[in-house]
Design a protein around this nucleic acid. Structure first.
Lengths: 342, 342
DNA sequence: TTTAGCACTCTAAAGGCGAGAGTGCTAAAC
DNA sequence: GTTTAGCACTCTCGCCTTTAGAGTGCTAAA
């Protein structure tokens, strides 16, 4: 099923042109637009072949050709050559990051916003998250009554807070001492390791260890909130002009659980710096059929990693989007490296 | 400009019917639908009067009537009688809150989701936030190198984290001691009060106080992230069926700064438990012209308060929405009361 | 193998038409 | 004086037809 050079060129051009204009592209138009040195009839023959092979399709007889999912896939995997973002753009982006205050949330918001504007699509990003969560630091703060605020810092820098109620009330001093002791006692441990040690303790300390294990468990089972940006971009695309399509698009983005699933599933296969492209849901996610996603990961493997990516129409500008995602994932990783709690 | 009783009834019915059907309501229809004991001609006369007074308008000659912004306003302020949510609904909602783990973020998400589904519109909510930010607790955590993680707890329970870089590196023990001392030294103070005391300190402690004041300032100038839910609801309304309208609606919701401005401006005038209704942007916000908002506040005044509300089409179901907002703001306030750091 | 020519197909935009809903006005009825 | 029946008029909306245009596939010649 190898394509001839000419077929590759034509497929590339069809994809380009369709991405540009969003309307089916015909043979004559193609020849004129790109000044090909062959006639429209020749192109027509090739188009017919490519259609037979399943890379193109016609919305109806006597309409131009539109890439199929397979067409996009072939294009992305075989025809798209790797490009880097222009230096000026890279610089512009980096600059913005170094101007904000060093805060993971800020960075995420900024990354989402940049990604959305660069790709003209919706962007998404999850906070850095570790799958093997280890204890780093705990703090117990007396509030009023029997309420205690527990602040938990994990290896990797994630922070969790939680309110707990006790039967008796403790003063801040007692709480601080307990926290101090816990810190050295279970430094760097996982929930399981802490469990095996819990019996050596008693009273408040034992209770607190229980909360900590709870939190550690709950952290490893959740994948932080998905940040979104650029929702309007995807609505602006003509294929989502109908009210119903538009709503469906929005629904996908609002339905965080689907996104989380896709991100998690994809996370398994992708390494930091590697970019994955999911075209039309890849047969697995029905709701994603009219969309493509470009996903990357950032962070430090084993310590804490997050995903970032773009959701747009099938006819998104893959080259530009892929290089943007790759660049941003690298940038975020290095920014994060400096603030990792080890 | 006082309306007769009959005019009030008719205006109410027009608003009701238009909210229900989303299409202009005519005299005949009105009489049949509500079995009024007058003829359509009489109703027609009253409609003409109401139109002259500016409470109704006709999309074109020979179409039914549609409420104007003034019409909605009159309806909400004078004709809508205060109702409470049915007991069963109240119970159902409370139940959901007590089932989640006690975490402000969780509550906010839940509140947004309930509000969206109850009102069939988009909901928004901001985290509890204090305008006079006071220090409650600080923690300094050694990471690697010269990076330090500072976790700051404010009176009211807000938590801020931040990474800072130092010229020299300190061990955890030194950091803990410093944090301990700071805690007692500036307990409950505002940024200004801390400033007047900073000169009594030196070294790491002085530096840390600087960071803390920075954070306190930055907290009081920001209003936390606006949570959103139910975006698809507003898209489902027929008045936003056109692609362009839909995008504009979405843009309003994505443009957080506008929302923040509205929320802040409104916060000034509204007390806990009071609900404000903003119809058509009230002449101030052009982008909000096609929308209505129902806003409430929750929390404990002076300590920490947040806003919650709904953004929907002008023809939203005001009665139901208002009572939902009122109920949720009360519920959130009491939930929060238990976890307030004082 | 490529190209010119041609008959054919299908969409999308534009125009025309009729049904239906609603209005305002007038004159009669209460 | 208020209410109502009757009526002519207006305007939209959905439906149909028509038409222009773009694109195709096929055939036969270069």
């Amino acid at each position: 099923m190898e394509l001839s050079d000419r077929q590759k060129i034509i497929l590339t051009l069809v994809v380009h042109e369709y991405i540009r204009t969003a309307s089916p592209v015909g043979s004559k138009n193609l020849v004129e637009q790109y000044q090909l040195d062959m006639s429209s009839a020749t192109v027509r023959n090739e188009l017919g072949l490519l259609t037979e092979m399943g890379y193109l399709r016609q919305p109806h007889t006597s309409a131009g050709r539109v890439p199929t999912e397979e067409g996009y896939r072939y294009f992305v995997e075989r025809l798209l050559r790797r490009t880097e973002l222009p230096d000026s753009t890279q610089f512009m982006i980096s600059h913005q990051f170094y101007q904000t205050r060093p805060d993971v949330d800020e960075w995420m918001k900024l990354a989402a916003s940049i990604l959305a504007s660069q790709s003209h699509a919706a962007s998404l990003i999850t906070p850095p998250h570790s799958d093997k969560t280890r204890f780093k630091h705990v703090e117990l703060v007396a509030t009023r009554g029997q309420q205690i605020l527990m602040v938990l810092v994990l290896l990797g820098g994630e922070i969790r807070q939680r309110f707990v109620t006790l039967d008796e009330s403790f003063n801040q001093e007692k709480l601080s001492t307990t926290a101090d002791h816990i810190r050295t006692f279970v430094q760097g441990m996982t929930a399981d390791e802490i469990l095996s040690r819990q019996n050596q303790t008693q009273g408040l300390e034992k209770t607190a260890l229980g909360w900590i294990m709870d939190e550690l468990h709950s952290v490893s089972s959740t994948t932080g909130e998905v940040f979104l940006d650029g929702l309007t971009n995807v609505m602006a695309e003509p294929e989502f002009s109908g009210n119903d399509d538009a709503r469906r698009a929005l629904r996908v983005l609002e339905e965080r659980s689907l996104l989380q699933e896709v991100l998690e599933r994809t996370a398994a296969n992708s390494s930091i710096g590697g970019v994955q492209v999911i075209i039309g849901g890849e047969g697995t996610w029905e709701e994603l059929r009219p969309f493509s996603m470009v996903l990357g990961r950032y962070g430090k493997p084993g310590l804490a990693t997050g995903s970032l990516g773009v959701l747009g129409p099938l006819r998104m500008s893959y080259g530009r989007t892929i290089s943007t995602v790759r660049f941003l994932s690298g940038l975020l990783s290095s920014l994060l490296m400096d603030t990792m709690v080890e």
